Simulated assay, not measured.
Amino acid sequence: MSINKKTLSSVNPLVETRDVVAIKNKTGNLYESITVIARRANQISVVMKEELHKKLDEFTSHTDSLEEIHENKEQIEISRIYERMANPALQAVNEFFDDKIYYRKK
C-alpha cells in the first residue's frame, strides 16, 4: 500500500474543527466512525514511516565522518518534506469525509 502524494499535498496540515454529527452520520455511530478513522490513520502512519526509512537508508554509510553527518543536505530535505506533511489522523479524516475509505461491519 502506498500513499498518493497528490492527495497528501491537498490535505490541510492545520487542525480544524469537525462537525461531530457529520462524523456520526457516516456510519450511524460516532465511535464506529472514530474507529474507522483511527485504523486508517495507523495504516497511513506505518506506510509513511516505511517510505521515510527506505529513503533515508539510501544515505547510510558504515563509516561516518563528522563532515558527512553535517553535510548531508539531501537527507535533511527529505526529513523536512515528511515533517511538512499533514498528520496521518488529519489525512484519515479527510479520506473519511471524501468517501475514500472502505469499511464494513463484521
Rank of each mutant, 00 (worst) to 15 (best):
K106A: 11
N94I: 04
T60H: 11
M48F: 14
N42A: 13
K54D: 15
L66V: 14
I78C: 01
Y31H: 10
S61P: 04
N72S: 07
Q91R: 07
E83H: 02
L8F: 13
Y103H: 06
Y31N: 10
K73F: 11
N72G: 05
V93C: 09
Q43I: 03
L30C: 01
E50R: 05
R40P: 03
Y82R: 00
E71T: 13
R39S: 10
E32I: 10
M85H: 14
N29D: 10
N4Y: 00
I37K: 02
E83M: 08
D57I: 13
Y103C: 07
E58S: 10
V21H: 02
S9Q: 15
E95C: 09
L56I: 14
H53P: 02
V46I: 14
V20P: 01
A92T: 14
V15D: 15
T17Y: 11
E67R: 15
T27L: 08
E67D: 14
K26D: 00
I3L: 07
R84N: 05
Q43M: 08
K106R: 09
V46R: 15
V47R: 01
K73Q: 08
K55Q: 09
I69V: 07
V21R: 10
E71C: 12
N72V: 04
R18C: 06
S61H: 15
K26N: 00
R84I: 05
E95G: 09
T7S: 12
R80V: 12
R40C: 13
Y82M: 06
D64S: 11
I44T: 02
L8A: 06
K49R: 05
E77A: 12
Q75C: 11
V93E: 03
S45C: 08
T63M: 13
R104C: 07
E51G: 06
V20A: 00
H70K: 12
D98F: 12
V36N: 02
H53R: 11
N72H: 14
D64N: 05
N42G: 12
E16W: 10
I81E: 13
I44H: 01
L8G: 00
A41C: 03
M85F: 13
I44E: 05
N29E: 04
H53K: 08
V36L: 06
T7Y: 14
D57L: 06
S10C: 07
S79H: 10
S9N: 11
D19E: 11
M1L: 13
K106D: 01
T35D: 11
G28T: 05
R80G: 07
R18I: 06
T27C: 11
E74P: 04
S9L: 12
D19S: 10
L52D: 06
E50I: 02
V21C: 03
I44V: 12
L56K: 02
K73G: 01
T60R: 10
Y31D: 07
V46K: 04
I34Y: 09
H53Q: 14
M85I: 03
A41M: 00
Y103Q: 04
E16D: 09
V47H: 00
D64A: 10
D19G: 13
E16T: 12
I44S: 02
E67H: 14
V21K: 15
T7P: 01
E16L: 14
I101P: 00
V15Q: 15
K73S: 13
T7L: 08
E83N: 02
R39G: 09
N4V: 00
T63S: 12
I23C: 01
E95K: 03
E50G: 03
D99W: 04
